[in-house]
Amino acid sequence: MIIHILNGFVYGGLLYLVAIGLVLIFGIRQVVNFAHGSLFMLGAYVGYAATAIAGFWAGVVAATLVLAILGLLLDRAVFRPLQDQDPIVTLLVTFGLLLVIEDLVRTVWGKDTLTIAMPDLLSGTLRIAGEDFPVYRLFVILVAAGMGAGLTLWLKRSRIGLYVRAFASDPLTTGTQGVDTERVSAAVVALGAGFAGLAGIIAGPLLALSPAMGGSILIESFIVVVVGGFGSFSGAFVAALVIGQLQNLGIVFIPSFSTMIPFLLMMLILLWRPLGLTGRAA
């Protein structure tokens, strides 16, 4: 049972890393980014390319940095102009972006699935509760937990974190206090995209890489964001862990229904609390 729970944390951790980017970008730019799953996918492919040249750890750094830089460019070229637009325009533009990124990856790396080898350092197993558990999966849990803790500390303790929370709550007043909100936004979008890239590369050794791999994690990340309460950092953390566990235990105990579980949970939560677990009325 402990092994199943740990596997739930692995999936929940990956979901959290992707979902938190959605939360950050929505909180700052009020843009629902349908292209976020393709940033996860692109992170995996960039990581694959860098791993082939300089090893897995270079792949981790490259995927995170390249996606963070791409986030900066997207913020300037797409999210900033979109922030005051009709939500349907946002949906169409980010959906178009998703298709462009998928096509680009298909053109560069082809349609066939690819794999990223686990680093030697993390390729063994560890004996936990009488069963073997892959060290790499523990690494994924630790990365997600570390990123979650780091982000929380950054938001709560740092000056820029204060500006981010203020901006997500009242952008105009934050700007009039002297904060350059465009720079803060660009940094936050870069952070969100960087998290997606990191999630992509560390998921690489666990998944088969394909241009379509961003689709399913995007849908479940949206469920995490909705269940947690749109715009809530702590809500996304709790929801990712819960959905990760339910999804994984569902695969083990009721495999025919497992894919429905996140959707059922979302429906129940929305009926019970329409603004999500931590959502509050404006």
């Binding site: 204060l162 203020a166 709550s169 009039t176």
Partner: peptide
Amino acid sequence: HYSAARAGISVVPQGRRIIPALSVRENLLL
């Protein structure tokens, strides 16, 4: 939006516009 603050002009706005997500101390630090 930030021009006045950076020029040494601080505004106490009508309606106060206290930021709900921040504590008293954090509003001051902002």
